[in-house]
Amino acid sequence: MSLADKPLSPQRRRFLQDSARAAGGCVVAGTVLAYLARDARALPAEALRPPGALPEKEFLSACIRCGLCVRDCPYDTLKLAELGSDGVATGTPFFTARDIPCEMCDDIPCVAACPTGALDPGLDNIDDAEMGVAVLVDQENCLNFLGLRCDVCYRVCPVIDEAITLETAHNTRSGHHALFIPTVHADRCTGCGMCEKSCVLPEAAIKVLPTRLARGSSAEHYRRGWEEKAAKGAPVVEGIIDLPDRLPGPGTDNLVTPGGFAPGYDLPGAGQ
């Protein structure tokens, strides 16, 4: 029996039409919603998530935007993003280091308050938090880079001498002073933002950035020869021949300029 012979039920036809309309409408609405969902992941660089926050993608599947972390934050650091004004997914918690940094409470009340695990309850030591990484972004205006002893970012760091150290370098401008360069060690930096908050400049020279922006990554197959050598206690390649070093100066085997280095040869950065 062919299709044409069957009496077509008007109810069936109507049901199919209605379903197609509804499904079509849902595809349109769902597409708009999916775009919004994609946009929601674009966290602005200056917005930092609370300690223990899952990576952004998982965070948005876990955070129900209840605000309990905000309520339990004793320093009013955390805020809930407001629609259309903060650029962060509406209703999710964040903080801006330059406004109010994270004070790194020992008992981490925000994580304890989170009912869903969007803030990972596995975080039991605030020093292990990874809210972001401080980066000294403006070496031209940082007072320490100019040879002064500001040191404020270093002094206020809750993980002083581990997350930020002062590394000395020669001050080539004066010729006889030291520079004390604030140096961030990313594996110890929690991203609390105390350094950014305290920077004395009108616009902070050190800023906490999300890890994705702050850090590069080493290629997996790279090996640092000196580390491998130290680990092994011997050169990594067996039987390597130690050739004589070609040092400049008289009495060496410098064949290109016997008796000394070529006067016209400038090492990079050594020029007057």
């Binding site: 849902c26 595809v27 969902a37 929601a40 599947s61």
Partner: peptide, 20 residues
Amino acid sequence: WILAAILLVSGLSGVIAWEL
């Protein structure tokens, strides 16, 4: 239908969709 679409978008995007 909207309810179903929201669950679908939540599943596909990994975001609690309706809270947007």
